[in-house]
Write a protein that binds this DNA or RNA. Structure first.
Lengths: 246, 246
DNA sequence: CGTTCTCATATGTATATACATAATAGCAGC
DNA sequence: GCTGCTATTATGTATATACATATGAGAACG
């Protein structure tokens, strides 16, 4: 390294990026098998003609992505692939429908205010009885029902929801505006449509549906539980795993 | 900042980590609403009594996690929540079955070697005709079929597969040993079991199944396409979203 | 009034440096 | 041989610095 001031224009992509993709390629191609010790930071620094810090940043990122494991005093090692972590993007329903080029429509089927039953508490993850709102609604793509939504909202976490009718706007975006970000857990499964669901989705009873359940917390407090049911034909989820996403 | 040499023991967690969680907390709590401009790097540097580099690393990470958007000359802004990225862990089937405390058994139903048909090429993402192996097999949890697997393996990417019978060991782990790491795309959907699938899973024809399809690449080359079909009752997937995972 | 040019500014990327920390290897002493 | 100390080593985290780059704001100009 000939010191500070090296121009960056000589490389089209950043050095960081180059190191990252070089190394992941070697791992992905199998050239560096699981268990293999990759060169030390300072060695890579010499190879790439850059400082240890730059290498360090790239390797730290690879470690976070799960491709390598770093051990002090020993070096960095290619990890045994175990679980395939994949990133699933769960979008807003209106966005999804509009992405298909179809007009979106929302319809409220029922709204109900009650004290949490045992089942409600199980779904929401509540430890005590609390007031809540239970909703059922439908999302249309063009003329066809696209998705059925069944939702519980914990009123002690979101008191404003008591005054809201949800007749015109879907509860999902409404909540996102008020509880802007939160931790969430998703459960994805398949079910056979029972009578009510089949009616709502205008499909045959017993036909398969893809179900996404989401539980949402805000600072440790359960906010909402929602079950989206999609007719099997109309929907699938895509998840990707790419180790060097930048 | 009183210069180099500040001891790190005074803070239990790293400064980087603290900035990261502080800021995401403010965003998650709604204190900083979408569109809000968060303080400039140098301002945060003064607030946290640290250098711009440290702030920069934390903010870059938040940007990569999708919580904020960074604009040169303008600053960093809280993003509108759009897609909820959730991490899905897809494990080995044997591991899953054994996690249930049930004995695992594998059974090969059929193995077939052929040149890729049009459909095969679509599934694998091949642009040219190539030899491949097509497999069907079952995974048992105790006495019940747990999962049906239908797989294509691209022989030009994995020539060794031609010599392998797959009678005793499942192709998934076998491939993992040889193609140690790879990029993958998962598609999750629900289907109604057709006659063959119903027979293999010992369920009624037409009953719902959860389907996971996975396409795997190794250095831009398609390696395998696999479709796992689970009887709806027996399986669900869990994905989590936690914004500041470190 | 609109267009273009210049300048200031915030982020982006890289450097060299400093010290902390964890873990190993080797050695000393019992 | 086992235990515990010490030195070494690779990574972890932070610093100050330097320069690149994109872009917004305002000045200069037609």
């Amino acid at each position: 390294m000939d010191g500070i001031g090296k121009t960056m224009a000589e490389t089209a992509v950043s050095l960081h990026q180059r190191i990252l993709s070089d190394i992941s390629e070697r791992i992905l191609s199998g050239e560096w098998a699981p268990g293999h010790r990759i060169p030390f930071e300072h060695e890579l620094g010499i190879q790439y003609n850059c400082s240890r810090m730059t290498v360090n940043k790239a390797l730290s990122q690879l470690a976070k992505a799960g491709l390598i494991e770093r051990r002090r005093r020993s070096g960095s090692f290619v990890r045994q692939p175990q679980a395939q972590p994949a990133v699933l993007e769960i979008h807003d329903i209106r966005t999804e429908v509009e992405a298909l080029g179809l007009p979106y429509r929302y319809e409220l089927l029922s709204a109900d205010r009650r004290r949490a039953t045992g089942e409600d508490r199980g779904l929401l993850g509540l430890d005590a009885v609390a007031p809540l709102v239970a909703l059922q609604c439908r999302h249309f793509a063009g003329k066809r029902p696209f998705c059925h939504e069944r939702r519980l909202i914990n009123l002690s976490a979101v008191p404003d929801a008591a005054a809201e009718s949800f007749a015109a706007a879907a509860p999902g975006p409404w909540l996102l505006d008020r509880v802007p970000w939160s931790a969430a857990e998703h459960r994805i499964s398949a079910i056979a449509a029972d009578g009510d669901l089949a009616l709502a989705l205008e499909i045959q009873a017993g036909s398969p549906c893809l179900v996404i359940e989401r539980r949402t917390w805000n600072a440790e407090r359960p906010v909402t539980h929602v079950r989206f049911a999609y007719p099997a034909q109309s929907h699938s989820l895509v998840a990707r795993f790419t180790p060097n996403q930048g």
